[in-house]
Amino acid sequence: MSLDASKWAWEVRIPVKKGGALKPLKKLVLLSLADRACEQHCAYPSMTRLVEDTEMDRKTVLKIIDELIEDGLIIDTGERKGKTRQVKVYQLVGVNGRETVPTMAPLKAENTDLKSTNSGTVPTMEQYQQFHERVPTIPSKSPNVGTRNLSKNLSIESKYKKDWLCFKKLREEMFLADDSIDFEFVTKSRWAEREKRAFEIYNAGKNLCDDLMNYYFADWLIQAYRTKYANHQETGHTKRAGQNTEINSLSEKQIFTFASKLAHHPEFSGKFGEPGESYEKLAARIAIKLENPNTAKKWEPYLKQVGFTGNLRGAA
């Protein structure tokens, strides 16, 4: 955290732009960046962190960041951080000063009256002012520098793994999408690692957090299994496709899961979403519609694209 950057963000005047975001919202995003800045006044919080800090939807935050760049308050350094090297590093423009550490200045002339172990040094003005208020400092080369840019509430596995892949999250996503597929069989297959490399190449350059990577990889594996590898499985590992029976309507858990996935489906959200609508609001509207068997049957092609198996009869 940079005190100079936070002070600068509070004092800087936000330009007014016709048709742009509200000044208080731009100020809030700028303060969030400053709060995550290091001593060089660079910040690289994930998009998930900025959305959580500001309580605004992702599209609004991305729009405001573009406006802050146009205003000349921040710049994209071109550097990328994070495990996947996809988190953008922003430089705050116009911050004056650097955080300094109290130092000891040598005496210019020897004083024979000083017999203590501190003889030969005097505190600088900054150290004198902080004499009664000791503040712990972190060396600039410490591994703890920049830890405020890490995602919050990481699981133990996520803290120590060197990859974005989290088997616990992947298992949950695959179970919610299709509980008939044997997770252990899929992940231990030789083709799973091959599909993982293909998935990483496909998503290279996209600003996706670890949770979204696991979310989309679950769909990727399920789709790959059905289209390329299902016929090569050993008997008894999963339910055969012919055993999928027709159902009248989706369960409550399926409605919640597929509503969220359809809200992130580019074609579906572009067709049924409203301008400026957040993913959460769109998912809530979709969930209400999916409770109707006729609507669910109408959207069945989209449901199959996001992991639904089986067939819907629709209302009689």
Rank of each mutant, 00 (worst) to 15 (best):
Y216P: 00
Y202E: 14
M104K: 15
M213P: 00
R80E: 01
R148V: 15
N96S: 10
G146R: 00
V186S: 01
F185Y: 15
V89Q: 00
E173Q: 12
D113C: 08
P143S: 12
D163Y: 04
D179K: 11
F185T: 10
D178W: 06
S116I: 06
R190D: 13
E184K: 08
P136F: 03
T117Q: 09
M213S: 03
S119P: 01
K115W: 07
D163T: 14
F167Q: 15
R190T: 15
R85Q: 10
I74N: 00
P106Q: 07
Q127E: 14
I75T: 10
R194C: 05
G78E: 05
G82F: 00
G146C: 04
G205N: 01
N111H: 06
T187S: 08
K115Y: 08
K162A: 09
N111I: 10
P102T: 06
F183D: 04
M104S: 13
Y216W: 11
E157V: 12
Y90N: 02
D179H: 09
V135I: 15
K152S: 15
I75K: 07
S119Q: 09
R134K: 11
G78K: 04
A109K: 15
Q130G: 07
W164D: 00
I181Y: 03
E110H: 11
Y215T: 02
R171G: 08
L154M: 13
T77P: 01
C209E: 14
E157L: 10
P123D: 10
T121K: 14
L107Q: 12
Y128Q: 12
S155Y: 03
E157Q: 11
V93L: 06
K162R: 10
F183Y: 14
P106L: 08
V89H: 01
V186T: 03
